[in-house]
Simulated assay, not measured.
Amino acid sequence: MTFTPEQDALRETVRAVLERHSEPWKVLCEQVGVAGLAIPEAYGGLGCGLGETQVVAEELGRALSSAPFLGSAVLAAHAVLEAADETAARRLLPAIAQGAIATLAWTTADGTWHPDQAAVTAKGSTLDGSAHYVLDGDLADILLVIADTGEELGLFEADPAQVRRIHSTTMDETRGLAVLEFTGVAGTRIGTGDFRPALHRVRDIACATLAAEQAGAAARALDITVAYTKQREQFGRPIGGFQALKHRMADLYVLVETARSAAYAATQPDVDRARLAAVAKAYCTEAFSTVAAEMIQLHGGIAITWEHEAHRFFKRAHGSTQLFGQPHHHLSRVVPDLD
């Protein structure tokens, strides 16, 4: 797994911003341009690929940042791009590239994130229904909606002022989610034709990006745990010196590195991105959950106190497990007989 000098510089810059600023989104957008990474230059973006998006996501994961990158710069931006609507792209993408928060309302209450299903219905240009688990939905300036027209799925833009937005109280307080209720809301159709095939591609990109975020968070959780085992003493010596714990942390290191490889595999040319995105989501979810659980156990009682950050990694791990579909669902995409 190799990175270009530009990707390494991007990683270092994003990490420095996250270390210096408690509210980094504005700086990341204005000085680094992260909100426009995936957006072509013609629409005010940087025109970068999935690899650069994943580099940023990995660093945001290490910091457990609540920046609206995943929902806005990835999910919403790619939805607009996939719609292939030039008028909508010129109207929406420059704002997203500059840091306006956009979101995609799509998921039903069961949280399956299925590309063939929508939580909202459209009768003409009128939207009705309730979308759940909407990333930063209560803060978004631009609301995009997947709606079932009765014959196909379509992408719509809705007026935020007409939508009832309810912030969701979740275990992971670093991930902003909301329920959006549509009752006779006017919607503007973006693009034509059935959006289902495009939504599959959007979800694959989101899964690959989330996998990189999970790999970054897992790596940071392991770093913190290793440092702690070098400080905490038992029987007159650091617990990290005991062979059993050395073996456990060596296994975790292998798990983290293979998770990074799985995440970035989807960036390679001439690959089956859908299949590799499914592998990345399933593998990185399990890897992060395993590392977070070991972090709690190896820290002992301090890990379940509010004062220590271990519980935040544990909550992010379990929250991200549900995002964009659970691991067993994505495994069934790789090996259909597993479903």
Rank of each mutant, 00 (worst) to 15 (best):
F3A: 05
T4I: 00
T4E: 05
P5L: 02
Q7C: 03
T13W: 02
V17L: 10
L18T: 05
W25R: 14
W25C: 02
V27A: 14
L28V: 03
L28C: 10
V34R: 06
L37Q: 03
A38H: 02
G44C: 09
G45R: 05
E59P: 02
E59I: 09
L64M: 15
P68W: 06
F69W: 14
V74S: 05
L75V: 07
A77M: 14
A89E: 09
A89L: 04
L92W: 01
A95F: 02
A97H: 10
A105K: 02
D110T: 07
T112S: 11
H114W: 06
A119G: 06
A119W: 02
V120K: 10
A131M: 06
Y133L: 10
Y133E: 00
V134G: 00
L139S: 15
D141M: 07
D141Q: 15
L144V: 08
I146H: 03
E151K: 13
G154Y: 05
D159L: 04
V163P: 05
I166W: 02
T169S: 13
T174N: 15
T174L: 10
L180H: 01
E181Y: 07
V185T: 11
A186C: 06
R189H: 07
I190F: 03
T192Q: 07
P197Q: 04
R201P: 03
R201W: 04
A206G: 12
T209E: 02
L210C: 12
A211Y: 13
E213Y: 07
G216C: 03
A218H: 14
A219L: 14
A221C: 12
A227D: 15
T229R: 10
R232P: 00
F235P: 00
F235D: 13
F235N: 09
G241Y: 03
Q243C: 03
Q243F: 08
H247F: 09
R248N: 04
L255C: 12
L255N: 14
L255T: 14
R260W: 13
V271M: 08
L276G: 02
L276E: 08
A277S: 15
V279C: 07
V279K: 01
K281D: 11
E286I: 01
A287D: 07
A287G: 10
F288H: 11
E294K: 10
E294A: 15
E294V: 10
M295A: 14
Q297C: 06
A303M: 03
I304D: 09
E307N: 05
E309T: 09
A310S: 15
A310I: 08
H311I: 11
R316E: 13
G319D: 12
Q322L: 15
Q322S: 14
H328L: 14
L331F: 12
S332I: 09
R333W: 12
P336C: 11
